[in-house]
Write a protein that binds this DNA or RNA. Structure first.
Length: 420
RNA sequence: GGUAGCGUGUCCGAGCGGCCUAAGGAGCACGCCUCGAAAGCGUGUGAGCGUGCAAGCGUUCCGUGGGUUCAAAUCCCACCGCUACCGCCA
């Protein structure tokens, strides 16, 4: 949720943000009037409650014979207070609805427009020229005995898979490397719950436009997380955290679950787009003034991992209309996938400024000891999808795959060989 | 899953219908005392919302949500959590 004080003082900034996102500008005026309505309702209810309270005290002190008359007036007051309280509740609900309808304010410099209006910030490495016909990751994975989609489908359905043998080991090595690097950067490793309560899922903003993406267990009213961002953001919900020693940073390792509703027919081959995958995710709580610098750092850590995998990639500044509700800015790293002749997203880091923390009630004390809303950020350090880029970019003509140097100690080999 | 007990401020803990604007203690902060410290003494010590330039004022918050009442931390109902015991279980 955006800052209402900011909205009252600079509604034009909010309008401009909406415009850049291609979102509805009139929502800004709806929110302004809902805000004014609520404040009027609060004032009225407060006044009536004060009157009732004072009156109630006089009843308590009054001599018995005067009470019946006073009780009469008391009942009237009670009815008025009840009505005013109901009006206040309604005004609050209307405000919340209008408030949730507006996505985060974009940061200056974010490109306007939709999915295709991103700006490429840099390109690192050269796409490799093959002197043979490269295989796609699934063919390679099958030759290596690393990926089994058919049995994944047999056991669980479409978009499920087994990683086996060197495939399973490759993923474990990759995620371990990510955790090791995170640890070296001062992150606290976390293995979070992957089932969360409605209020946690709601608070992180995933039940808005992405509601159809989320698995829900009806019998228990719990949600399967699509990223450990959800439990890691919920971790400090409702708390006043201590940021005096700098940002609080976690690296979560979890399985992630996505329904992939609406993506029928897209990326149906292999493990690019699946219902379940594993991920190491960075999550940062920071003072708002430190958020932009933290964002740059998260991006740098992602690039460091990609470089360790020796994969060509580019970094894009995602356009406003493609940011999602909570993000004020988002950088994606896209790795070169040879058989698709395209860059595909491997990491995504978002600066959510105070938007997510406001909804979750995450605050810190400023230098005056006053509680202030914190900023939150997140970024990907490694996922199952990385295997696609690793396998394809490092394949050799005989179907073997060279292991990136950084993973060799973890795998105990410098090359993965096809099964005979 | 069942039964019982319990959920109060940073923490401990009293309170069991109106004087709760929440006792008392601990902790913390500041001041006095001291060469310095401890002890002692004094003062202060939450969050949200509204209003105001501000000091302040008003209101809400005693696990959560409903209800009873002129009036609820206090009574009633439901839910959640914790603890103990019983049952079941990888």
């Amino acid at each position: 949720m955006i800052d209402l004080r900011e909205l009252r003082e600079h509604p034009d900034v909010v309008r401009a943000s909406q415009r850049a996102r291609g979102a509805d500008e009139s929502l800004v005026d709806s929110l302004l009037s809902a805000d004014a309505d609520r404040r009027a309702a609060v004032s009225r209810a407060d006044e009536l409650r004060a009157e009732q309270k004072a009156f109630g005290r006089t009843v308590g002190k009054a001599p018995k014979e005067e009470r019946p008359a006073l009780l009469e007036r008391g009942k009237e007051l009670a009815a008025e207070v009840k009505a005013a309280a109901a009006a206040e509740t309604a005004a609050n609900e209307a405000l919340t609805a209008a408030h949730k309808a507006i996505p985060n304010l974009i940061i200056d410099g974010v490109p306007a427009g939709g999915e295709d209006d991103f700006v490429t910030l840099k390109t690192v490495g050269e796409p490799r020229q093959f002197d043979f016909q490269p295989l796609d990751h699934l063919e390679l994975g099958e030759k290596l005995g690393a990926i089994d989609m058919e049995r994944g489908a047999k056991v669980s359905g479409a978009r499920f898979y087994f990683l086996r043998g060197v495939g399973a080991r490759l993923q474990l090595a990759l995620l371990n490397l990510a955790i090791g690097k995170a640890l070296a950067h001062g992150f606290t490793p976390m293995v979070p719950p992957v089932l969360v309560k409605p209020e946690t899922m709601e608070g992180t903003g995933f039940l808005g436009e992405h509601a159809a993406e989320v698995y829900h267990l009806g019998d228990d009213d719990l949600y399967l997380v699509g990223t450990s961002e959800v439990p890691l953001a919920g971790y400090h919900a409702g708390e006043i955290i201590d940021l005096n020693d700098g940002p609080i940073r976690y690296a979560g390792w979890s399985s992630c679950f996505r329904r992939e509703a609406g993506s029928y027919g897209k990326d149906t081959r292999g493990i690019i787009r699946v219902h379940q995958f594993d991920k190491v995710e960075m999550f940062v709580y920071a003072r708002p003034e430190d958020a932009a610098a933290q964002h740059e750092q998260l991006l740098a850590f992602e690039e460091d991992m990609l470089q360790a995998m020796e994969i060509p990639y580019r970094v894009i500044d995602v356009a406003a209309g493609d940011l999602g509700t909570s993000a004020a800015r988002k950088f994606d790293c896209e790795a070169w996938v040879p058989t698709q002749n395209a860059y595909r997203e491997l990491t995504s880091t978002s600066n959510c400024t105070t938007f997510q923390a406001r909804r979750l009630g995450i605050r810190y004390r400023d230098e005056n000891g006053k509680p202030q809303v914190a900023a939150t950020l997140n970024g990907t350090l490694a996922t199952t999808r990385w295997l696609v880029a690793i396998l394809e970019n490092h394949q050799q003509e005989d179907g073997s795959v060279v292991v990136p140097q950084a993973l060799q100690p973890l795998l105990g080999t410098d090359v993965l060989l096809p099964k005979q």
